[in-house]
Design a binder for these strands. Structure first.
Length: 274
DNA sequence: CAATCGTCCTGCGGGC
DNA sequence: TGCCCGCAGGACGATT
């Protein structure tokens, strides 16, 4: 499941490959993955070219010519796969194929079909982000310790649920929010208002460090995540709690436990996360 | 008002 | 071995 580090990786790699290229044709196999009727989507997007690629939360924004944009969410099993010209296209759960004039291709694969590629005009994109009220970008300068404290003061409920809330902080999902709690020695069940100053400091530090490190390793390949070359991310071996149910805690030797929290599988060490 | 549930979808693992 | 059942999960809307 692509979270901030995975989407950031895709953004970086894709920027090197498709900026300046023109969309020559689009094949659409799943109409539920787009926000128009198949033919209308094609009619609008064909002949547009790629100007720039940005990321906001876990969303990829591909800025096109003519004041259009693709807004892409990979959700759980979405993949963007870049195929160099003259190479064979191997389709696996492929919902959309973008063919560029250069002869290269971009595949949008999605096993569970929760993801989407929406075609939005500039003003629709703008109002989309106003309406969705997406939270602060954790790796940007605006996200300071003071800002984090202020956000926490106004937040109720459990810390891990809060970290996963996209309207609170953008981009943390199930994997990294569990890792951040572990980093800070904080039990994911803890109520936000009960957190002590030093725990808040560690949570803040953990968010910055873990996300930065995960980007360096091109993300975590849990589920079906791969980068645009089909390569797996290399961060999974560096995960401290996620997916380690029943195994020994690297830090204290306790047994990692898995519980359901906010409807999500949540991993933590009951011995050192208090 | 926080917490939980249903929805979308499909592969996979457990049970028998 | 093979079939069936149910679970997982991001985000959103509805309900408790």
């Amino acid at each position: 499941m692509p979270e901030l580090p995975e989407v950031e990786t895709i953004k970086n790699e894709l920027s090197k490959k498709i900026i300046g290229k023109k969309i020559k044709d689009i094949e659409i196999f799943s109409e539920s993955s787009i926000n128009y009727k198949k033919d209308d989507f094609r009619k609008i997007a064909i002949n547009l070219s790629i100007n720039k690629i940005e990321r906001r939360a876990k969303i990829l924004i591909v800025e096109l010519s003519d004041h259009y944009n693709f807004l892409i969410h990979l959700k759980l099993t979405g993949q963007l796969i870049y195929v160099e010209k003259n190479l064979e296209i191997s389709k696996k759960h492929t919902q959309i194929i973008f063919h560029f004039s250069s002869g290269d291709h971009l595949l949008f694969n999605d096993l569970r079909k929760f993801g989407y590629v929406k075609l939005l005009k500039d003003e629709e994109l703008k109002s989309y982000f106003i309406n969705e009220k997406i939270g602060v970008e954790p790796l940007e300068g605006i996200f300071t310790l003071e800002k984090f404290k202020e956000l926490l003061r106004n937040k109720r409920g459990k810390i891990k649920v809060a970290l996963m809330d996209q309207k609170f902080i953008a981009g943390l999902g199930n994997i990294y929010s569990a890792e951040v709690c572990f980093y800070a020695y904080v039990n994911p069940n803890r109520i936000v208002s009960s957190l002590e100053e030093k725990e808040i400091n560690l949570l803040f530090e953990g968010i910055k460090k873990i996300l930065t490190e995960a980007i360096k390793y091109k993300g975590s390949s849990v589920d079906t995540y791969v980068d645009i070359y089909g390569e797996k991310g290399k961060f999974v071996p560096l995960l401290k709690v996620y997916g380690r149910k029943g195994k020994k805690c690297y830090r204290c030797g306790g047994i990692i436990k898995s519980i359901s929290l906010g409807g999500r599988g949540t991993y933590f060490c009951p011995q050192c996360q208090k």
